[in-house]
């Protein structure tokens, strides 16, 4: 990337720390969280071509990990971060091992993740361990030691750190041998297998990596809103949002999800403001979505690529 772009990126990323408006910081925070989740999806869905429709499984796993660690075992919520990395990766590895061993890909893989998300939703809605449909209230107790921030800038800082981490992982994938193997599988499974790439292992690791990172987002959610329930954790909307952010921005590129999150959040906010009729704004949002898909088949990053070419 060229120097001016790095400067613009740094200003955008660090700017919110200078803002006094909590709502603008909040907007930045939501955008960064969204970019982070999109980037997590991108690691599996973009670089690996594993089009997941149930990525909220990992988000929800992280959120419940945080809530249960505190309310059941009284552990410090910061411990939820490493714990969620582990639980998220394990769930990713388990689903990946099952699905890829069975040779699922494309629409079939998308559907199986959708179904797993539903299983998680029903289970968390039924089990005592997760307090069923009651959901879990995390007791209010503001303070950095307790991972509850009164100032949104602190939440933003954590979200930004997550985004940097996930983007570093994406950049690494772009260069590393592992990423090359993954890309080879995405482009042509048979050819890659003929070259000695272990399909099940490579894809499973990618999903586990993506799952572990996504779970961090769930922890941040739980610590910010202090309430976790089956619909918030495992509802299909969040899965769709992650996928849209990555695909609209440009799946399989390092900067695509970030662009996607920025553009989608701005569109959502602009289309929402000043329109009073319920339903009208999201309708407009849907139309804009169709236009972007129609005009930019490679995602928003396509504009940049075209300009550079």
């Amino acid at each position: 990337m060229k120097a001016p772009l790095i400067v613009v990126g740094l200003v955008l990323a660090l700017g919110p720390f200078a803002l006094t408006s909590q709502s603008l910081v909040n907007f930045a925070m939501l955008t960064v969280v969204s970019a982070f989740l999109g980037q997590c999806w991108n690691i599996a869905g973009g670089f690996g071509g594993l089009t997941s429709f149930g990525h909220t499984i990992f988000f929800g796993t992280g959120a419940y990990t945080a809530a249960i660690l505190q309310t059941r075992w009284g552990l410090n919520p910061w411990l939820a971060l490493p714990a969620a990395l582990v639980t998220g990766s394990l769930v990713g590895a388990a689903i990946g091992a099952a699905a890829f061993r069975a040779g699922l890909r494309g629409s079939y893989f998308a559907l199986v993740t959708l179904a797993f998300a539903e299983v998680f939703r029903v289970l968390s809605n039924s089990l005592d361990f997760t307090r069923g449909g009651l959901g879990i209230n995390i007791p209010l107790g503001m303070g950095a030691g307790n991972f509850q921030f009164a100032d949104r800038r602190s939440t933003y800082a954590v979200a930004l750190a997550f985004l940097v981490l996930a983007t570093a992982a994406a950049a690494w994938l772009k260069r590393a041998r592992f990423g090359a193997r993954l890309a080879a599988l995405r482009e042509n499974e048979d050819a890659a297998a003929a070259l000695g790439v272990n399909l099940v292992r490579t894809k499973t690791i990618a999903l586990a990596l993506s799952g572990g990172l996504t779970a961090l987002g769930g922890v941040l959610y739980a610590q910010t809103y202090l309430y976790v329930d089956p619909a918030i954790s495992f509802g299909v909307e969040r899965s769709v949002e992650m996928l849209l952010v990555a695909m609209i921005g440009g799946a399989g590129t390092v900067w695509g999800p970030i662009l996607g999150a920025i553009v989608l959040h701005i569109i959502a906010d602009v289309s929402r403001s000043w329109i009073d009729t319920p339903g009208f704004a999201p309708m407009l949002y849907g139309v804009v979505l169709l236009v972007i898909i129609g005009l930019l088949p490679r995602g928003i990053i396509g504009i940049w690529e075209r300009w550079r070419a």
């Binding site: 939501l30 909307e237 849209l244 989608l264 959040h265 959502a268 929402r272 403001s273 329109i275 999201p282």
Partner: peptide, 10 residues
């Protein structure tokens, strides 16, 4: 699909 909305009803 996250949206926010704030409108002034004048």
């Amino acid at each position: 699909m996250r949206h926010t909305r704030l409108t002034r009803r004048s």
